[in-house]
């Protein structure tokens, strides 16, 4: 419980940093003023309300959603390397959005929202099937390689399309490396709803996923239908990942790191782990974003690059720890 309180405090601190860093002067006092007594003529107030607020909301949605999605994926595949980025689900959503916008000739929020979810779902199913999940033996190595291959293919298509239209390079960067900049232009409302629905479903089925992890036979004995739980998990992961990609682009490795920490905070009860994962995911993403903004001013390091720089060494560390026989 104490760990959970610390996590919440850290999140509040990270959120406050997201809103204040970059303000020329004033710090937290100015932030408090802008939130309680908004002055529409003060440029600093406007910056906080119209640029940093959407950024904060996008970070909260994406971080919490990716943390929860990673936790569900790791629980259901019993695979410590499962992450929406590594397993290609991010790439599926990005691919669908880019292709769809291109065919439709426009890129409005509703369209993006409508495309991200089927893209994420298709990629999730494809990776699970290609990684041997249908035969019931999706080992970490197989799933990882299948995800890497699928990502490579989909992102090659995305680059081909975007390189074909030079003016779109800025958009390209967004759909290949996630970012919280210009969050005000993303469909925040739709994505928040999707994330909440996905989170609700995840929390609802969490105890049954735990039963499933005891083995299918035992789970059936306890009155759980494994197929239905897996479907539920798929829907939850799709909603969460689609929401995250919709507001922040493909951000990898957050879903790899967060579940491990969440296990400590949540104490090996999946429901509590999920809540911890949401809080920790948002906290880490916001911190990473803030660090990316202040590291090389005036330029910004995209938050997707930051999470990859932090997450890739963790991936290596975890790959080393995989037992040679563990589904490898």
């Amino acid at each position: 419980m104490r760990a959970m309180i610390v996590a919440v405090l850290a999140l509040v601190f990270a959120a406050a940093l997201t809103l204040t860093v970059g303000v020329r002067d004033g710090g937290f006092a100015l932030l408090f003023q802008a939130l309680t007594a908004f002055d529409p003529t003060d440029p600093a107030h406007i910056a906080i309300q119209s640029i940093r607020m959407p950024r904060l909301i996008a970070g909260l949605i994406a971080g919490a959603a990716l943390g929860m999605a990673g936790t569900i994926m790791q629980a259901i595949t019993r695979n410590p390397l499962a992450d929406p980025g590594i397993l290609g689900i991010n790439a599926g959503a990005a691919f669908a959005v880019v292709i769809g916008s291109l065919i439709a000739g426009r890129a409005d929020n509703g369209l993006m929202a409508a495309l991200a979810f089927p893209g994420a779902a298709a990629a999730a199913i494809a990776v699970f099937a290609l990684g041997g999940g249908l035969k019931g033996d999706a080992g970490p190595v197989r799933l990882t390689l299948a995800g890497v291959a699928l990502s490579a293919m989909l992102l090659s298509f995305v680059s081909a399309i975007i390189l074909a239209r030079n003016e779109a390079l800025e958009v390209f960067r967004f759909w290949v490396t996630g970012s919280l900049a210009q969050a005000g232009m993303r469909p925040l409302g739709y994505m928040a709803i999707a994330a909440v629905l996905g989170a609700g479903l995840a929390i609802a089925i969490a105890p049954r996923i735990e039963a499933l992890s005891l083995g299918s036979a035992l789970a059936r004995g306890l009155g759980t239908n494994p197929g239905r739980i897996q479907l539920g998990a798929l829907v939850a992961v799709t909603a969460l990942t689609g929401a995250a990609v919709g507001v922040a682009g493909p951000i990898a490795f957050l879903g790899l790191l967060v579940p491990r920490l969440a296990r400590r905070v949540g104490g090996h009860v999946l429901r509590r782990e999920l809540i911890a994962a949401a809080i920790l995911g948002a906290t880490i993403l916001l911190f990473a974003d803030t660090i990316g903004r202040i590291l090389i001013p005036p330029a910004e390091i995209r938050v997707g690059t930051m999470t990859a720089l932090i997450g890739a060494p963790i991936f290596i560390w975890m790959a080393r720890r995989l037992r040679a026989g563990a589904g490898a």
């Binding site: 390689l145 890739a312 790959a319």
Partner: peptide, 15 residues
């Protein structure tokens, strides 16, 4: 697997 990780890291550095 470790090589994939190094690949992820260099890709992040690229971007």
């Amino acid at each position: 697997l470790v090589g994939l990780g190094i690949g992820f890291l260099t890709t992040a550095a690229h971007s």
